[in-house]
Design a protein around this nucleic acid. Structure first.
Lengths: 230, 230
DNA sequence: TCAAAAGTGTTCGCTATACACCCATGG
DNA sequence: CCATGGGTGTATAGCGAACACTTTTGA
């Protein structure tokens, strides 16, 4: 029999962190899911997550889970909601502090665990374990809100990218279409991009210039009460 | 000795909800604080809150706490962050799921508990217990974010109000000044207010029309992809 | 009759949008 | 030389900021 060595006067819930990991494949926004190896919901897909250690904050816990799953250290994560329905886990009461992460897909390597992990495009995501369908819906909603004000989109692109790629990313996240030329003009006049001498060679026709996101310039503008709008 | 009748294989944190209760006195945004009667932080002010029951969601818990403190049922509350620093409570590990509430000050009555409660203007808030200073800062930040998109301000006003009062509220929340005439025009053309026949009699000079917030109209506009901006 | 506050209208400049046009490249 | 996609410029409409003016009321 298991040893139950932690005792409390009142019942305590379990606390976990779950992490919705977003990536961009050049066309579609994708999320990284892992297949559950044990009951409940064995064989169903879910977001990576796990119990919160007693000596770590939720943010530290989420970063740890993220690193175990993708090998990435210090990626961009954001807490967006805590899910606390008393029946969200059939075994016992589990409260989960949910984060979303924005990562560059190219830099992700397989996880430590043997667990099967896979990137799913948003419109291919199957029915998930627990309340993770709900968690995904809310993560998307919050990401879309946040991207209106902060340049979080750049976390999803490689360091060098064309404006076309940037546009495709924003279109994928917000599920809208922009006019190619207006998007181009707007980006150039915002002054938060640095144009490089290099061009992208993957184009079938004319080669496009590569850009880098200019953190310094962005911070300066933000200081002056500038607001990034889309 | 206390009876410790709940046993777990791994240590579990305690989980509480805390509620930042915002009100508007006609000039200043205020928060409702309660004075702590016991250690730690005895005599210091803090936000109302308490342990989450095992059969209630965090939202239910926050609403329960809010009702115990103000007598209000079903007020507007919004979860904005979960605070999980391992050392935020000196006694044991406590994770708190934080909400802010928007209430009409006129409708608030004293709490059930004998605990002393008081409304503080934002610039009069003393140094608070635990990490509640941080909680207040983040609550304000999130409220200011949210008010750019949703008509949450109306939760803080009585049912009938003048446009002047509405302006003072928005100025108090966002800590800015608007041009009286532009604010007036904007509000009238937004079509989310219903003008009443009555006028306010508290004015020293000319009497101002009273308005009501038009929920139905707002929902219609929102359906059409309308965005409330300030 | 004067001061203060409510209510209305007008002007100006910026920016989002729509779209025309030229350039470079590969077949 | 033509089709495709990259890069640049321009015209228009709508909206927000600034502000002049009129109306109402109490002292």
């Amino acid at each position: 029999m298991e040893e139950l060595k932690y005792h409390y006067k009142y019942p305590h819930p379990s606390v976990t962190t779950d992490c919705v990991i977003f990536g961009f494949d050049g066309t579609n926004l994708r999320v990284l899911l892992v297949e559950r190896g044990i009951e409940p919901y064995k064989g169903r897909w879910a977001f990576p997550g796990g119990f919160l250690g007693m000596e770590e904050s939720a943010e530290e816990g989420a970063l740890r889970e993220l690193q175990e799953e993708t090998g990435l250290k210090g990626a961009y994560i954001k807490q967006f909601h805590t899910f606390s329905d008393p029946n969200r886990d059939p075994r016992e009461r589990v409260i989960t502090i949910a984060y979303y992460a924005l990562v560059k897909m190219q830099e992700v390597r397989g996880g430590d665990d043997a667990a099967r992990a896979e990137w799913f495009a948003l419109d291919e995501v199957p029915s998930l374990a627990f309340d993770h369908d709900l968690i995904l819906r809310l993560a998307l909603k919050e990401l879309r809100k946040q991207i209106h004000f902060e340049p979080v989109g750049f976390e999803l692109l490689p360091e060098k990218f064309t404006i076309k790629e940037l546009q495709l990313l924003y279109e994928a996240i917000l599920d809208v279409k922009f006019d190619r030329r207006n998007f181009y003009n707007k980006m150039k006049h915002l002054e938060i991009l640095t144009q490089l001498d290099e061009t992208a060679h993957n184009s079938p026709r004319k080669e496009a210039f590569l850009f880098k996101f200019n953190h310094k310039k962005y911070d300066e503008l933000k200081q002056k009460g500038f607001r990034l709008e889309f």
